[in-house]
């Protein structure tokens, strides 16, 4: 459900529930994309040879 859906109601329930959900999804999206960017950056700048062990 998005805020532009016809069933959306501007009430605390919707803000808290959907806010929490999108906050979590957004956090995950940003974290993964940050890692992708960092990996590409490593590849472009350093050749990515620095990380061998985990």
């Amino acid at each position: 459900m998005f805020p532009f859906a016809f069933e959306w109601i501007n009430d605390p329930s919707h803000f808290v529930f959907m806010g929490g959900f999108y906050f979590a999804l957004g956090g995950l999206f940003i974290a993964v994309n940050y890692c992708v960017m960092r990996a590409l950056f490593d590849w472009l700048c350093k050749g990515g040879e620095n990380h061998n062990e985990h």
Binding site: A24, L28, A31, Y34
Partner: peptide
């Protein structure tokens, strides 16, 4: 391959954030 290796490394670094999101969602 360097890109997946680097990606995996950075994912490990980001794991506390990802785990925290997981905890938030799981509790609910």
């Amino acid at each position: 391959f360097s890109v997946p290796r680097s990606f995996a490394h950075h994912l490990h670094e980001a794991m506390p954030t990802i785990a925290a999101i997981g905890v938030f969602l799981s509790c609910f």
